[in-house]
Amino acid sequence: MAGNLGAADAVRDPRGFALKFYTEEGNYDLVGNNTPVFFIKDAIKFPDFIHTQKRDPYTGSTEADNVWDFWSLSPESTHQVTWLFGDRGIPASYRHMDGFGSHTFQWQNEAGEVFWVKYHFKTDQGIRNLTQAEADRLAGEDPDSHQRDLREAIERGEFPSWTVQVQIMPEADAATYRFNPFDLTKVWPHADYPPVEIGKLELNRNPENIFAEVEQSIFSPAHFVPGIGPSPDKMLQGRLFAYGDAHRYRVGINADHLPVNRPHATVARTNSRDGHLYDGRHKGAKNYEPNSFGGPFQTDRPLWSATAVSGVTGNHPAPVHAEDDDFVQAGNLYRLMDEDGKERLIANLAGFIAKVSRDDIVERAIDNFRRADGDYGKRLEAAVQALRG
């Protein structure tokens, strides 16, 4: 198994993770975040969302106006933003945060029955977080603190572990469930689909060479093995294509030939053999399919079950259930917090919103939180006004 984690910083951003499972039937990649939801539900918005988080083309700096303009015009982001600016928005270390596959995936058993699943990785070290002030200080003094903490813990033999759980939904439930089960901005409440423990994830070895084993590693949600596949989740559908494009651009067309990316128990079946990184292993074998020279051949064995979807199962139309809107789960999350947690959330949000230059963006942003919970919006409005004067 290989893993890839980003560097720690004081910017509130979901901590991403990626896992590569070297199975007997090929490589299976699972990518996710330390939050169970995301800002948007449709991949068509993803490039624009990323633009708001990066440097403005005119100022060359990240701009609060851009961030809050996009979020306020994308009310589905309210749930994730509440997660992000709450206590769990800045983990104290990689060892002390949970992980989530976030997307909905398909599992199919030997009997041909189809289920929808969500992955959860619950830290066995306990949850620990940083305040914004602590993170600001640490980012300036020791921006590599998270990477160092993880490496040194493994060197000491204190191998961090996570309990792996899945939520399992029968295929037929999707069409009538009270929330769209393929909406990345929503969770499945545990009371509806209780998590089932299936194993442990343990990190017990550090990379011998960061460049070879981490920087050159590639992960794609399109790398499945038989019995596991995608769902109608629109963000996942977009990532099936986007991640492959990204690693071919970043590492090269033959990235799958590198040791960290090659299957361990099977032969890599790929027709990409020209240019950068190719190792020559296929010699003069044909590099197209179909062919009459003995392979390679496209297998007719499906990896997962094709599923017909329509209506709310296959789209994001007007909700068919009163709870399936952009604000219900954000409000539920706010109401789960204790009073101190609410105060920190309000202070974190207000400090960022107060940097916005336009009143209409400020009001639109606050209104989304007001629609999630009246107290949430009222307190946030007062905190922003106090900062803006």
Rank of each mutant, 00 (worst) to 15 (best):
E155C: 07
E155V: 11
E155Y: 09
E155M: 10
R156Y: 10
R156N: 15
R156S: 15
R156F: 14
G157R: 05
G157D: 07
G157I: 07
E158P: 03
E158I: 02
E158D: 13
P160G: 07
P160L: 06
P160F: 01
S161D: 08
S161F: 01
S161K: 13
W162K: 08
W162S: 08
W162V: 05
W162I: 03
W162G: 10
W162F: 10
T163D: 02
V164M: 14
V164Q: 09
Q165F: 13
Q167Y: 07
Q167D: 01
I168H: 01
I168C: 07
M169E: 08
P170C: 05
P170E: 04
E171L: 14
E171V: 08
E171N: 14
E171R: 15
E171P: 01
A172I: 01
A172V: 05
A172F: 12
A172K: 15
A172R: 14
D173L: 15
D173Y: 15
D173R: 15
D173P: 04
A174P: 06
A174I: 04
A174L: 04
A174C: 08
A174M: 06
A175F: 09
T176Y: 13
Y177E: 08
Y177A: 10
R178E: 14
F179N: 01
F179T: 05
F179Y: 15
F179K: 03
N180M: 12
N180T: 06
N180V: 09
P181A: 00
P181I: 00
F182D: 03
F182M: 09
D183Y: 10
D183W: 12
L184C: 01
T185N: 00
T185D: 03
T185Y: 02
T185H: 01
T185S: 07
T185V: 00
V187C: 08
V187A: 02
W188R: 04
P189K: 12
P189V: 09
P189D: 12
H190M: 06
H190V: 05
A191E: 12
A191N: 05
A191M: 00
D192T: 02
D192K: 05
D192S: 09
D192E: 11
Y193V: 06
Y193R: 12
P194W: 04
P194E: 00
P195D: 08
P195G: 07
V196T: 10
V196L: 11
V196I: 12
E197L: 03
E197K: 09
I198L: 03
G199Q: 00
G199Y: 02
L201E: 01
E202I: 15
E202Y: 02
E202D: 02
L203W: 12
L203V: 11
L203K: 12
N204F: 13
N204T: 08
R205C: 04
R205T: 08
R205P: 01
R205N: 07
N206K: 15
P207Q: 09
P207W: 09
P207H: 11
P207N: 09
E208L: 10
E208Q: 14
N209S: 13
N209E: 13
N209K: 15
I210L: 10
F211V: 14
A212S: 08
A212R: 13
E213P: 05
E213Y: 07
E213A: 05
V214K: 11
V214N: 10
V214I: 14
E215N: 15
E215I: 13
Q216A: 06
Q216F: 05
S217Y: 04
S217E: 07
S217P: 01
I218W: 10
I218Q: 08
F219T: 01
F219I: 06
S220E: 13
S220G: 11
S220D: 13
P221G: 00
P221L: 03
